[in-house]
Design a protein around this nucleic acid. Structure first.
Length: 291
DNA sequence: CTCCAGGGATCAG
DNA sequence: CTGATCCATGGA
């Protein structure tokens, strides 16, 4: 990885195991706009970013070295060795070799805690385009304006005066009460990001599940995508189906049994494995719909 | 019209 | 502990 400035832009050369589109579109993030095949705009940590990939060259448009080092380097998980991770997962589960090859550029983003918390509450029983629309709507209504079309997601204090009816007006449906409860518990420090970060996986999950509307799946997404807990393993309907097919001969299993197998098989790399399994499941599901 | 979405709360057994 | 039903909303 070779970093240099070119006018206002910042260029990263020789980037390995990275594909921008795969990373943005794999269902972990909801606050971005696709401009072109490998070109996106997004917001995170109160900043706006316009980014583009051409082969193994990444261009961060109009970005200072300071912002790259303080924010984007960690956001895109650029200091993690994904080659090592992929080799480990392929060894533990050879069925995944092909799908890892197809999705060899997926990175797990290190997103902001509060935005991730709220986004995955919204994700429950919802579709990705709709989740994105709701995240954008909350940002536009209560967040800081960054460009003509993009707004930063507000922090908890920015939502302190927002009530359930306000969330309901945006058509968040039955999740309005959940969003309210999350804001309240973050403001009261009942939910504290730093305590969660230092807590172990089980303790952290338990604390997150104290928020109304958060269960095991959403809690694990929050831990994986915003608290740096890469051993977290979110199990949704897709994951359940594909795990039963790959490891249990197609027989139905309880969520606990599946979670136990994941922990045993993938350990500290559970979260990474989950991304490839998710891609595998979605691909299988799509071809099923076509055929 | 019906069905379902990267689930979870609630209640029955 | 496991299973069924409901939850708002919008797109297929």
């Amino acid at each position: 990885m070779n970093i240099k400035k070119s006018g206002k832009d910042l260029i990263v050369n020789d980037i390995k195991d990275f594909d921008l589109a795969q990373t943005m579109e794999c269902g972990q993030c909801f606050h971005f706009v696709r401009l072109d095949e490998e070109e996106y705009e997004l917001t995170a940590y109160g900043r706006y970013l316009h980014i583009k990939q051409e082969k193994n060259i990444l261009t961060f448009f109009d970005t200072t070295k300071k912002d790259f080092e303080n924010i984007w380097r960690h956001y895109f998980d650029l200091d993690t060795d994904y080659g090592k991770i992929k080799r480990y997962i392929a060894k533990r589960s050879p069925e995944l070799k092909e799908i890892i090859k197809k999705n060899k550029g997926i990175r797990i983003l290190n997103q902001e805690f509060f935005e991730t918390l709220m986004s995955f509450i919204i994700s429950q029983n919802n579709r990705i385009p709709r989740i994105k629309a709701l995240v954008a709507a909350i940002s536009e209504k209560w967040g800081r304006k960054l460009t003509d079309t993009m707004y930063a997601f507000p922090d908890a204090s920015g939502l302190s005066k927002v009530c359930e009816d306000d969330f309901r007006e945006l058509k968040t449906g039955f999740r309005a009460a959940y969003l309210c409860d999350a804001v309240k518990k973050v403001l009261s420090k009942d939910i504290d990001e730093h305590l969660l970060t230092s807590a172990d996986l089980k303790d952290c999950e338990e604390k997150l599940c104290a928020i109304k509307g958060i269960g095991p799946k959403v809690a694990n997404c929050i831990m994986l995508f915003s608290l740096g807990k890469r051993e977290a393993f979110p199990i949704d309907v897709w994951m359940k189906r594909i795990m039963e097919e790959l490891y249990f001969g197609g027989k139905e299993q309880s969520l606990n049994t599946i979670a136990y197998l994941a922990a045993d098989r993938f350990g500290e790399y559970g979260g990474y494995a989950q991304q490839y399994l998710f891609a595998y499941a979605r691909e299988a599901g799509d071809s099923e719909n076509k055929g």
